[in-house]
Deep mutational scan, measured.
Amino acid sequence: RSRTAFTAQQLEALEKTFQKTHYPDVVMRERLAMCTNLPEARVQVWFKNRRAKFRK
């Protein structure tokens, strides 16, 4: 699988949600996936990586 390049709009939506909660539930992730045209699995991995970045 190749690396996913996120658009500015996708990142904005993801970051906005991350500010609200670092652990979105499956419903919220699926809604984000639909809004951003990304698979739910990519949204889940983005949050996992973003939490790791946040802890540093």
Results as ranks from 00 to 15, higher is better:
E12R: 01
A41Q: 11
Q10Y: 03
Q9P: 07
R3Q: 15
A13I: 12
F47K: 00
L38V: 08
R29G: 02
K48N: 05
P39S: 13
N37A: 07
M28H: 05
W46R: 08
E12K: 04
E12I: 02
R51K: 03
F54D: 15
A13W: 08
K16V: 08
L11M: 09
F18Y: 05
D25V: 02
F18G: 01
E12M: 02
R42D: 14
T36G: 00
R51S: 01
R31T: 10
T21N: 06
V43G: 05
S2L: 11
A5K: 13
A52R: 09
M34H: 07
C35S: 14
Y23G: 08
K16W: 08
R3E: 15
Q10M: 05
K16S: 11
T36V: 10
V43D: 07
F47W: 01
L38Y: 03
Q44R: 06
W46G: 05
L14Y: 01
V26E: 13
M34E: 15
F47I: 02
P39N: 10
P39F: 04
T36W: 14
Q19K: 09
L14M: 02
L11P: 00
L38S: 03
T36Q: 10
M28V: 11
V26R: 10
Q19W: 06
L32I: 08
W46V: 01
K16R: 11
T7E: 08
L32T: 00
F18C: 08
L11I: 13
F54T: 06
E30R: 05
A13R: 07
R1W: 10
E40L: 07
H22Y: 05
T7R: 08
Q10E: 01
K48E: 15
T21C: 15
A52Q: 07
T4E: 15
W46T: 00
Q9K: 11
A52Y: 10
Q19M: 06
A13T: 12
K48A: 12
V27G: 14
H22G: 02
F47L: 08
F6N: 02
K53L: 15
F18P: 05
M28E: 15
Q19T: 12
R29N: 02
L11K: 10
V27H: 08
R51T: 06
R31M: 07
P39G: 07
R1T: 14
L14P: 04
P24F: 03
Q19P: 09
C35D: 15
A52T: 15
E12C: 02
R1F: 10
T4N: 13
V27Q: 14
